[in-house]
Design a protein around this nucleic acid. Structure first.
Length: 566
RNA sequence: CGGGGUGUAGCGCAGCCUGGUAGCGCGCCAGUUUUGGGUACUGGUUGUCGGAGGUUCAAAUCCUCUCACCCCGACCA
C-alpha cells in the first residue's frame, strides 16, 4: 500500500474527547472516527487489524471444531419473550418497531437466535456435539459508553454456542473453547490471564474471563502467588479468617462534625481504616438490611445478593438510611440496633474490638466498639471483594491484585436457554432431553483497543506483529533524490512479492513527518532509506517496539524481515 | 438517571463577563526554502458561531427552551 493512496488521516493534536491511550492513538493514527456516542467508523487501518484478529479467531475456532455462521443483527421480540429476557433485559436492549408495529431489537447477544436455529433442525443425539460461532456487530445501549472502543455501544464480537447431550460432554466443549481462547490470545501477542468469573445474569455454573493485563483496565483481579488460582475480585471466595484474640476497649461517643466517609473520620480521629466497621444499608426486594464490613474492605454486591437470595439489590437512599439508623447518611452503626430485616457481617468483622462505628446520631461516632459485647449480628459471611494481600482460598498463599481488560468470556450455560425455548433432542433410548449449552464470547474490537493499552509508548502504538495493519513501513527520506525513491520502490516491490504487507510512505513529506506518522501508526518494522546510507549500500531497520536500530545491506533486507515477521 | 463540563473553519482553541456583524494555531491549496525526528517564509482557501424561540436598531455574546458530546458515579456476558 502506498501512503499517498491510504486513507489514514493522522492528527497532530489529541482529540479532545479521548482520554484513554487506545482511544487517543486510534483517532490520531487515523484508525477510527466517531459517528455518535460509542459508535465508530473503522477506517482502512483499523479494518486491516480487525481482519487479522478475526482471522486468528476463525482459525482457532475451526481447529476446535466450531463452524462459522452469520446470524441476523435485527431480532424479533418473540424469541426474547420466550427466553424470558424481553422483560428481564433493561434499556440496554435497543428496541424498535417495524412498519407493521411488530417489535424487534438490535442483538446485544445471540442466545435466542442460535437456540431457535438449532432447535428447528437438530433432533437427534447423533447430531451432537454442535458448536456454531459468528463474528458479528453487536449493539448494547450502554448507560454510559466510554473510553473509545473499550466500552462502545456498537462493537464487533465473536460469539460461539455449544450444544451437547449432557453436562460431561458440555464441559468437554467448554474446555475445548478455553484451550482455543488461550491459543487465540497468545497468537494475538497479548499478555493475558484467564480468571474465574461470576456467571452474572447469564446463569450457569462455570465461567472464566480472559483478561489482558493493563493498569488502565476496568476489572480488578487477584491471583495467587503460590498456586494457579486467579479470579475476578467479584468472584474470588475468601477463606474464613480465624477470630482475633479479644482485646480490651471501652465504648465512647465522640463528636465528629460533618465527617461522613471512612477517610474523613479516619483522618479526624487518627485511626486507620482497618479499625472501622463500615455499616451499609441496602434495599433488597423491598426490605432493608444492614451490612457490616471492615473499613478498608469493599462490599461485593454479587456475594451479598446471593446470600440474601435477592433479585434486586440497591443501596438504600437517604430516607431509608434515616429510617433504619435514625441518622443521616454517614453515621449509621450497629450498636443500639438498626431497624432492618437482618444485620449481615463480613467475616473480618468477627471479633473486632476497639473499633470505630457510626453512632446512629448525626455528627457522632462511637469508639472502642467490640463485636459481640456491644452488638450482635444475624450472621457472618463472605461478603467483600478480594483484594491485594488476601489469602488464597485454594492453598492459603498470598494473592496479588492486578487489573485487566476483559477480552473474552466463556460460560457453561447448562439448560437455561434450551429448557426455556424447548431446544431438545432424542437420546439413544428415545427420551427427549434438553441440550446442554455453553457460550463463548470474544470482543474483537476490544482486543484492538486492549492491545494498544498494553503495547504503546509516548510516540504511538507498538503493535504485536500478528495484528498490526502492516508488517513493514518503508520510508524514503528524500523524495527528491531519485536513487532513494528507486531503492524504496524496489524494496517495496520485492517485499510485497515475498508476501509481506508493506506500507510505502511515498508522500512528498520531510523525514520527520514520516517518522512521526510511522511511530504513531505503529508498524512493527521500519525501513528508513536515506541518500547517505544508500551510498554505502545500507538501509536502516528499526524495531518499533524495542527501538533497536540496525543497519542492513540492501540485499539482506528480505531475509532479515523474513526472520522477524515469520 | 444524579453531579460536573463543552458545543465557534477539517482538528485544537480564543472571542461571550462589558452586544456593533468573527479570529488564532494546526491542516489544506499555490509557491519559495529546507532535506534523517512534525523546517522557515509568502500568498490563498475554509464558518447556517449545535438548534429553535425571545429581548434589542443590532446577538457568537443577554434570556428561555432544546439537542448533541465529554468526564465522575450508578449500570454491565
Amino acid at each position: 500500500m502506498r501512503m499517498t493512496r491510504l486513507h489514514a488521516p493522522t492528527l497532530k493534536e489529541d482529540p479532545k474527547d479521548a482520554e484513554v491511550v487506545s482511544h487517543r492513538y486510534l483517532v490520531r493514527g487515523g484508525y477510527i472516527r466517531k459517528l455518535a456516542a460509542g459508535i465508530y467508523d473503522f477506517l482502512p487501518l483499523a479494518t486491516r487489524t480487525i481482519h487479522k484478529i478475526a482471522n486468528i479467531v476463525r482459525a482457532e475456532m475451526s481447529r476446535a471444531g466450531a463452524q462459522e455462521v452469520f446470524l441476523p443483527a435485527v431480532q424479533p421480540s418473540e424469541i426474547w419473550v420466550e427466553s424470558g429476557r424481553w422483560s428481564f433485559y433493561g434499556p440496554e436492549l435497543l428496541r424498535f418497531k417495524d412498519r407493521k408495529g411488530a417489535e424487534f431489537c438490535l442483538g446485544p447477544t445471540h442466545e435466542e437466535v442460535i437456540v431457535d436455529l438449532v432447535r428447528r433442525d437438530v433432533r437427534s443425539w447423533r447430531a451432537l456435539p454442535l458448536n456454531l460461532f459468528q463474528i458479528q456487530t453487536k449493539f448494547r445501549d450502554e448507560i454510559r459508553p466510554r473510553a473509545g472502543l473499550m466500552r462502545g455501544r456498537e462493537f464487533i464480537m465473536k460469539d460461539a454456542y455449544s450444544f451437547d447431550v449432557d453436562e460431561a460432554a458440555a464441559l468437554r466443549s467448554y474446555d475445548a473453547m478455553y484451550a482455543a481462547y488461550e491459543r487465540i490470545f497468545r497468537r494475538c501477542g497479548l499478555d493475558f490471564r484467564a480468571v474465574e468469573a461470576d456467571t452474572g445474569a447469564i446463569g450457569g455454573s462455570r465461567s472464566h474471563e480472559f483478561q489482558v493485563l493493563a493498569d488502565s483496565g476496568e476489572d480488578a483481579m487477584v491471583s495467587c502467588t503460590a498456586c494457579s488460582y486467579a479470579a475476578n475480585v467479584e468472584q474470588a471466595e475468601l477463606p474464613t479468617p480465624s477470630r482475633p484474640a479479644t482485646g480490651e476497649s471501652s465504648l465512647a461517643k465522640v463528636h465528629t462534625p460533618d465527617r461522613r466517609t471512612i477517610d474523613e473520620v479516619s483522618a479526624f480521629l487518627g485511626r486507620p481504616a482497618q479499625a472501622f466497621i463500615k455499616t451499609l444499608i441496602v434495599h433488597a426486594d423491598g426490605k432493608l438490611h444492614a451490612v457490616l464490613l471492615r473499613g478498608d474492605h469493599e462490599l461485593n454486591e454479587i456475594k451479598l445478593k446471593k446470600r440474601l437470595g435477592a433479585t434486586l439489590l440497591i443501596m438504600a437512599d437517604e430516607a431509608e438510611v434515616r429510617a433504619a439508623s435514625g441518622a443521616p447518611v454517614g453515621f449509621a452503626g450497629p450498636v443500639g440496633g438498626l431497624k432492618v430485616e437482618s444485620v449481615l457481617a463480613d467475616h473480618a468483622v468477627a471479633g473486632m474490638t476497639d473499633a470505630v462505628t457510626g453512632a446512629n446520631e448525626g455528627d457522632h461516632h462511637l469508639t472502642g466498639v467490640a463485636e459481640g459485647r456491644d452488638f450482635q449480628v444475624t450472621g457472618f459471611h463472605d461478603l467483600r471483594m478480594a483484594a491485594d494481600g488476601d489469602a488464597c482460598p485454594r492453598c492459603g498463599g498470598t494473592m496479588k491484585g492486578f487489573r485487566g481488560i476483559e477480552v473474552g468470556h466463556v460460560f457453561y450455560l447448562g439448560t437455561k436457554y434450551s429448557k426455556a425455548m424447548n431446544c431438545a433432542f432424542l437420546n439413544e433410548t428415545g427420551d427427549e432431553k434438553p441440550m446442554v449449552m455453553g457460550c463463548y464470547g470474544i470482543g474483537v474490537t476490544r482486543i484492538m483497543a486492549a492491545a494498544i493499552e498494553q503495547n504503546h509508548d509516548a510516540d504511538g502504538i507498538c503493535w504485536p506483529v500478528a495484528i498490526a495493519p502492516f508488517h513493514v513501513a518503508i520510508l524514503p527520506l528524500q523524495m527528491n533524490v531519485p536513487e532513494v525513491v528507486a531503492a524504496a520502490e524496489k524494496l517495496y516491490a520485492e517485499l510485497s512479492d515475498a508476501g509481506f504487507e508493506v506500507l510505502l510512505d511515498d508522500r512528498e513529506e520531510r523525514a520527520g513527518s514520516k517518522f512521526k506518522d510511522a511511530d504513531l501508526i505503529g508498524i512493527p518494522f521500519r525501513l528508513a532509506i536515506g541518500a547517505r546510507g544508500l551510498q554505502e549500500g545500507i538501509v536502516e531497520l528499526k524495531h518499533r517496539r524495542g527501538g533497536e536500530v540496525v543497519k542492513v545491506p540492501v540485499g539482506d533486507v528480505i531475509s532479515q524481515i523474513r526472520g522477524l515477521v515469520a
